[in-house]
Design a protein around this nucleic acid. Sequence first.
DNA 1: AGAAACGTTAAT
DNA 2: ATTAACGTTTCT
Length: 151
Amino acid sequence: MWVTQNNVGLLDIEGQRGPGLDSGANMLRPMTLLGPLAEGASGGPQLSLDSEDAHVPRGHEKESGTASLSPLSGYIQAEHQQAGLFSLTPALEDPQKKRRKKCGACVPCLQKENCGTCGNCLNRQTGKQICKMRKCVQLTKRKNDSEVRVE
DNA sequence: AGAAACGTTAAT
DNA sequence: ATTAACGTTTCT
Ligand SMILES: [Zn+2]
Ligand SMILES: [Zn+2]
C-alpha cells in the first residue's frame, strides 16, 4: 500500500515528496498474456490476475458495460495491445505526456480559496482552469523550457 | 504573447 | 458519474 496516491496539498501539505519522486512510478501489470485456450485444466480454485488493487491509472476507457465479457474479449484486447494498434493507457508509458501535479508548496498552491474574480474564475465552465491566484508556479512554466531567447 | 475553448486525465 | 484542472489548439 503505497501511501495511497499523493494528495498534493488538498488537505495535507506536509509529507512533501521530493521533486522527482513520482507517485508510484510506472508499474505495469504483469499480465501474462493468457489466451482463451491457455490453461484449462487446473485444480487451483483461485485465479487472481492481479495481486491486489491493480490501480494502474489508465487513460481513456471508452464504452462501459464491459462487466461480464467472454474470455475471448480479453484475448482480443490483449492482442490489439501488443499489435500496437492502440496503446491503452497513453500516459504512464510515455513520461512525456504524463500530466504534472501541483507542487503543493508554493504560495499559489497554498491558497485555499478561489479568488472568484480572475479570468479563470469567471470562465470556469469554458476555460476549465484553476484560479490564477492558485496556479502552481511550477506548472506555470512550460515543461521543456528550451527557450531560445526571443525578444 | 496572452486569453479562451476544448479534449482529456486524475481524483472523488 | 461528477468534478477539478492540465495540456494543446485556436483566437485575438
Ligand atoms: Zn481566481
Ligand atoms: Zn505549487
